[in-house]
Design a protein around this nucleic acid. Sequence first.
DNA 1: GCCAACGTTGGC
DNA 2: GCCAACGTTGGC
Length: 147
Amino acid sequence: MKSEPDTFGIDDLYNKPTQTEHWDGVRNYQARNMMRDDMKLGDQVFFYHSNCADPGIVGIMEIVKEGYPDFLAFDPEDKHFDPKSDPENPRWMMVDVKYVRTLVRTISLKELRPLEELEGLELVKRGNRLSIMPVSKDQWDFILSLE
DNA sequence: GCCAACGTTGGC
DNA sequence: GCCAACGTTGGC
């Protein structure tokens, strides 16, 4: 899962009282579908810092609440408000994530991109802008072995 | 700040 | 249903 560290980084999650936060503001159908259908309680997730000096994987989180309506979409005052979503028929979903740990170092996109083992990883595909993407068990283990 | 890549919107 | 216009993402 990607987030911009200037907006909400791994340290912000760490500093939450319960080290837990809802992953709000996702307004992309593919990403929504993954939160709604694929992410299960206890699943581990990489925290990725995007749009910053050194984009890459910085930590690990865990799903502590499965997909439910993104209530910010209902709030006209909120920047993520979407008039087409309402409580009767919510268009956008989110999950709750909990901090697990920060990696001892950032595993940068630059470093991951050329690795043969990660061919097929969504993150390193050209032009990828998805903010949530799947990682296979093999890819996960391999990436962590680089830490 | 630039710009390529991509998703969404809306006229037709 | 096509596709041009537009807005956004995110690496660099």
